[in-house]
Design a protein around this nucleic acid. Sequence first.
RNA 1: CCGAGAGGGCGGAGGUUCGCUCCCGGCUCCGGCCGGGGGAGGAAAGUCCGAACUCCACAGGGCACGAUGCCGCAUAACCCGCACCUCGAGUGCGGGAUGCAUGCGGGCGGCUCCACCGUGAGGUGCGCCGACGGAUAGCGCCACAGAAAACAUACCGCCGGUUGUCAAUGGCAACUGGCAAGGGUGAAAAGGUGGGGUAAGAGCCCACCGCUCCAAGCGUAAGCGCGGAGGCACGGCAAGCCCCAUCGGGAGCAAGGCCAAAUAGGGGACCGACGGCGUGGCCCGCGCCGCGUGCCGGAUCACACCGGCCGAGGUCCCGGGUAGGGCCGCAAAGACAAAUGAACCUCUCCGUCGGCGCCAUCGGCGCCGACGCAGACAGAAUUCGGCUUACAGCCUUCUCGGAGCG
Length: 141
Amino acid sequence: MPPELGTSRGLPWRVGHRFDMTLRYRLPRSARLQKKCEFDAIRAGGSRVARGCLIVNWMKLSGSSGCRLGIVVGRKVGCAVARNRARRLLREVFRHHQHDLRDSTAMVLVARPSINEKAYAAVERDFLAALGEAGLLKASE
RNA sequence: CCGAGAGGGCGGAGGUUCGCUCCCGGCUCCGGCCGGGGGAGGAAAGUCCGAACUCCACAGGGCACGAUGCCGCAUAACCCGCACCUCGAGUGCGGGAUGCAUGCGGGCGGCUCCACCGUGAGGUGCGCCGACGGAUAGCGCCACAGAAAACAUACCGCCGGUUGUCAAUGGCAACUGGCAAGGGUGAAAAGGUGGGGUAAGAGCCCACCGCUCCAAGCGUAAGCGCGGAGGCACGGCAAGCCCCAUCGGGAGCAAGGCCAAAUAGGGGACCGACGGCGUGGCCCGCGCCGCGUGCCGGAUCACACCGGCCGAGGUCCCGGGUAGGGCCGCAAAGACAAAUGAACCUCUCCGUCGGCGCCAUCGGCGCCGACGCAGACAGAAUUCGGCUUACAGCCUUCUCGGAGCG
């Protein structure tokens, strides 16, 4: 096991991706979008990429105030249990990769019904592929 | 031990790391940080009932509207009081209200496998079902089949009379009259069984069975009913409209309260004196508020002001808003794009597959390994109590059946 991973077995690292233990992977409520107008602004004025079980809408933020996240899970995804699961998976994926983004970005993730058959690793793969296509990832990785 | 049915309970455990949220304490460069603690279910679901809580209303009348609908007993949330100790948001006891819903018991009605009784019609028991006031308050509907389906009918029939005819105690045909027993249709054909009776028949008459009415007596009651009378008239549907009886304030935490902000809750013109709100829906009526070069009285130097009375709303023009603002309500989880999670390890369930071993008849048992999101239903939104619905597995109680042993 690489020494820099140390005690971080709780993080779902894979071959080709490492977590930097000098950073914190937090996502408090203040980093989440709360208002309807914020969602509308990003979905109307931002860019959009769909990949696998999710859709990414994003908008670059001015300044270095950090990334912000909003999650949309429609009724089409399923019952309340399924919607909760989808929301938690998307939030966790974003939390683990928030430092891989090139700029501070406001992002709205929309879940599609196929997320019900996918585990965390598959959702993460879709997320990274979509961000790669959008050109939001840092070039180093 | 196996299977079936009914009831009750449980709905994985331990750990590491990274996170979310609330509370308490400490630190702070006021961005936060550190430590401790709390953080989904038996149904959190459906929103079907009943409460708590909050606001509005609480002269009256009428018409609508809604709910309930066999009888008895018990039981909740809620309110009041008391006792005990391991003094906690603890446990238990007593009293009161509601009686939704549920449970238990009973009554009545319907259906019917079975059992028993009866020659039979039928009766009784067991079982299952029942939104179970009213079908003589009225209206409406009863398809198809069938001759006829609601104060019904005569298709095939049965029987008599007259005439004709023939192969003549009779057959056939026509006309005429009586009947509703038999056939056939139907969910249902207007009491049934047996006998008498008759040309043939018919409650036409008789016995019994059923039905309707009265009724000794019994039961807290729903009701039952000794006995008697009536030849029997009166089909079903009220979850079709309806009628009867009883009962019924309304809205719901997006209740509601506080605060902040704003050219937001409007502004203007004309004719003209009334207009708005509440009263659960409508009407009458009533109440409140505002308006008026209005009237009267008080008051005054005159206004203002106070009290009372009276009083027909319409047209046109211009602008603004349509945001989930914050806090409380709000909790030993407490959000408002909605926290209670993610990754991994160990153990133990259960299922599937594979391998090995034993017994060996399908197969069963044991061990090992892999896979299956610990695998079912399912995620709190003001809070309680009940009901209903969903549910992989596991545990347990009772009943029934089978196998084995004694």
